[in-house]
Design a binder for these strands. Structure first.
Lengths: 158, 158
DNA sequence: GTACGATAGTCAACGTGGTTGACGAAATAG
DNA sequence: CTATTTCGTCAACCACGTTGACTATCGTAC
């Protein structure tokens, strides 16, 4: 049972974690837009990352992201439409449709990594490198399990 | 510019923040479901909190949450349907429809606060109270701005 | 007292992201 | 050669968000 009025109410922690996540992602996409990728949405970067350099299929992508193959397929459609992914037939299996990152997608991915590195440096400059390291270590300790699940919209909503 | 291979790649930080948030929210709702509130979705708790003890209107709720009045109205509809909110006419203004938390909603809110306190205690037990305090302080420093905006699904998606 | 602008709420249409169920086409196992 | 599995897609649906248009009401200015 919680005390009547804790000095540090528990509800602040998740809000702060969300605000931190959101700040980083918003900063990323503000930078990304300036560097020629204004269409990229928060979800898209994670999807591109999940497709990876070797390419994959919609079904496998769904498994990696923790969503259904149908949802993965629709997301791929949208990213194909904006030029970040492309589909190709698999010569060895006519059922499969290979999903690959386009050069434009690879550029977005590379820039994202660089921007995330710069943002982390900014946090380290403000808070001190040890504090950022500690934050990461502590979060790794507490959140170890559900790492790479990006069904955020459906999870958070309904 | 980022170094070729940083010891701590920047992309991990947002992922860890999201994983931490998600872990807390998942733990909360697992507990909440056991305590008789299985219908409550992650978003709903934030909405109930935003409605507050005094009640509000859909338009004002939308302003508080950073979403349109139409979106706020639809969310209220859903929470009314599951019994967490109720609508009432405003005797002093026939245009306004008061939105109030029901007793069931208040129960969910009270339990949520208690569970969040317990979860924070659990984090403090594992990491040490000073580390959790530091994490909160650091996040407050870096994320100061966009605190109470809960348009997460639309923001993250598209 | 009436006319008018501002405000509250709703309806409709749409986009994104998610789900399940059904189905055809192709690979694989027997 | 047939039976089963697997991949991709289609269709229908739900949650959440958006903008635009509209009605009803309030408050004010004349």
């Amino acid at each position: 049972m919680a005390t009547a009025e804790p000095a540090r109410p528990g509800f602040a922690l998740p809000l702060l974690l969300l605000a931190g996540f959101r700040t980083l992602i918003d900063d990323l996409h503000a930078e990304l837009a300036q560097e020629g990728h204004p269409e990229l949405r928060p979800l898209h970067g994670f999807v591109l990352q999940a497709v990876g350099a070797d390419g994959t299929t919609a079904t496998e992508l769904g498994q990696r992201l923790g969503i259904s193959k149908q949802a993965a397929g629709k997301t791929v459609d949208r990213l194909v439409a904006v030029g970040y992914l492309e589909r190709a037939d698999d010569p060895s299996d006519a059922r499969r449709r290979l999903v690959r990152v386009t050069p434009r997608g690879a550029d977005g991915l590379r820039r994202s990594a660089e921007i995330f590195d710069r943002l982390r440096e900014r946090w380290a400059d403000t808070l001190g490198p040890d504090r950022v390291d500690a934050m990461e270590d502590d979060l790794r300790t507490m959140a170890s399990a559900n790492w790479f699940r990006l069904d955020v919209p459906g999870w958070f909503g309904g």
